[in-house]
Design a protein around this nucleic acid. Structure first.
Lengths: 323, 323
DNA sequence: GGAAATTTTGCAATCGATTGCAAAAATCTT
DNA sequence: AAGATTTTTGCAATCGATTGCAAAATTTCC
């Protein structure tokens, strides 16, 4: 079923059908109605391949997620998808599969589809390999990175102030009387490094001795070891909420009370925080705001041929029952 | 940058370039190499719109998710995306936004893109409105429903045995000595109705008096009321894990011990179950297997012109610390 | 060395939409 | 009623790939 078929039925030319489809002016009202009726009756749907070919645009944006297993990333992708869907742009969401060096392949996929814009989700994309891949494969399309920066003319960025958020959290614990606050990190992403940096700086400023776990694969083990080695610990900050869940379990098992004996903070203020018992206090990294800004920025770049911008969003503390 | 440009540089015709691109036979090895080198050097990427136009296929499949906010659905979508990505098919993941009656719009989007196949995720799609929309808009493309059935020739289904799983869970609790088991449901989706059915049947079979909350928006309130009204309760099954999280909190607050005083089961065996304290026992609705079957079935239908099939997968119990 | 067989390549049509330009139709002027 | 305007419509080129068929190049064989 093509516009030529529609044209035949409606007794007009294909051009007219096309113009009706796209709400172009200069079509007689009665003709327009007639064509529209045929369109409805036949349940016609435009061939976007054909349209994309002549328009040199796919009416799609690409969302490249560094790692799907990360709940937080998925949520971000969907917030952006949602925004663009309401604007009539379809989203092509693709998983990079965690391997940053292999980014060329998904990038080429998106380039082949001629996406009008691209969002990269995940701080691991802040990497030289990604930078050169972007330059080689999509040097001209507007890109926005969520939580990472690259120095390319077509690549904007929206970041949350991980460093500041973590500093603030550390200071908050200090202010509420904690003097031995540890930090447990899961992996060394650029974003997590900023968090660690904030923690260390706050410790220095406050005269606290930092107790840092740089990476860990199992939050329970890490927490148990930390508590064994540092009996005086009265606060732990985790780089991600689900780590804190494991931490809480160990703390509970050891007979310590939260937050009386020890305060616990997570990061990201994910839905999980509200489901744990006690409800987890968390550093809110403003996912919704971040995603919204990404969408706005990308839209702006796509419309105005777009100048590069870098925006930072402040974090806040979502205080609940753990500290 | 088109294949004509490549052709010019490589000193061949566009047809040859096309054949190299698609690994077609009958090209001289040296020519093939030369073209390939030019392809690499220029970083050429095929225009999928043009290709899609002549091939009458997009090399894309569509995944329509009933409601994005449902973590479980998202995970399912990604499992399917993953499978097809490994097969060179891109996925177009779209959110129906919860409103089943408005399914025509996303469906038309997918139809316009000429997706080669379609997966519907969410039992709410098991609905007359969806059936007629599918028939009207995509009567010819292979469709697989995850957790729902419709009686259309091009629509297969993969279901999990919610009813059986819930029966088994109820019986398990009975077997471990529970005599007053309640069921708390959040909403009346077809899938949840099957769960409730299984619970009721098990109760009857076991001679237990059913205590059922048909719908609830807040798990804590529902649980608190239930416990107040039924002091003898020694087991609660929730239709979804995150409800159980709220339940655990209330139970804990009331001073009851889990599982000694009361057993708690969730449903779906989501990552959350392993993060709660105590670790939540849950009815495993086999999301991974379900998604994998969906992918296989869709692939089969796309390749063989496909006959409709309906598969059911058994649930199992993931027993942990709550019962 | 030349005819036959085989391999390799290119020509040209095709997919289904959009759009500049010109022709046709309708409306307005006097 | 005829010419000038304006509105409405259609023709035909275009986008960038794929592919059947025929032509050209190469290889094989006697």
């Amino acid at each position: 079923m093509t516009i030529y078929d529609i044209a035949k039925v409606a007794g007009v030319s294909a051009s007219t059908v096309s113009r009706v489809l796209n709400d172009k002016p200069g079509i007689n009202a009665r003709t327009r109605e007639r064509v529209k009726r045929v369109l409805d009756e036949t349940g016609f749907s435009v061939n976007e391949s054909a349209r994309g070919l002549v328009e040199q645009s796919s009416r799609m944006i690409g969302i490249l997620v560094s790692d799907i297993r990360n709940q937080h990333h998925i949520s971000g992708a969907y917030l952006i998808e949602e925004y663009f869907r309401s604007r009539g742009q379809v989203s092509l969401i693709i998983n990079a599969g965690g391997d940053v060096s292999a980014i060329a392949s998904p990038l080429r996929t998106l380039a082949s589809r001629r996406v009008n814009g691209l969002v990269l989700i995940g701080s691991v994309f802040q990497d030289e390999a990604v930078s050169s891949a972007l330059q080689a494969i999509v040097p001209d399309i507007p890109v926005v990175m969520q939580n990472g920066v690259l120095d390319l003319p077509n690549v904007s960025a929206v970041l949350c102030d991980d460093r500041g958020g973590t500093m603030e959290a550390t200071m908050h614990l200090h202010q509420s009387g904690r003097r031995h606050v540890a930090y447990i990190n899961n992996n060394l992403t650029p974003s997590n490094n900023k968090k660690v940096g904030g923690y260390l700086e706050a410790c220095q400023e406050l005269g606290m001795e930092p107790v840092l776990v740089q990476t860990c694969s199992d939050a329970e083990d890490a927490t148990a070891q930390l508590l064994d080695a540092n009996p005086g610990l009265d606060g732990i900050i985790y780089s991600v909420d689900f780590l804190a869940a494991g931490g809480l379990r160990v703390i509970h098992k050891m007979g310590l009370r939260v937050p009386d004996d020890i305060a616990v903070l997570g990061t990201d203020d994910s839905p999980l925080a509200r489901l744990l018992d006690p409800r987890l206090s968390s550093i809110d990294t403003k996912l919704e705001q971040l995603s919204h800004e990404c969408a706005l920025l990308l839209e702006e770049m796509m419309e105005n041929g777009g100048v590069r911008k870098v925006k930072t969003i402040a974090c806040s503390l979502a205080l609940r029952e753990t500290g």
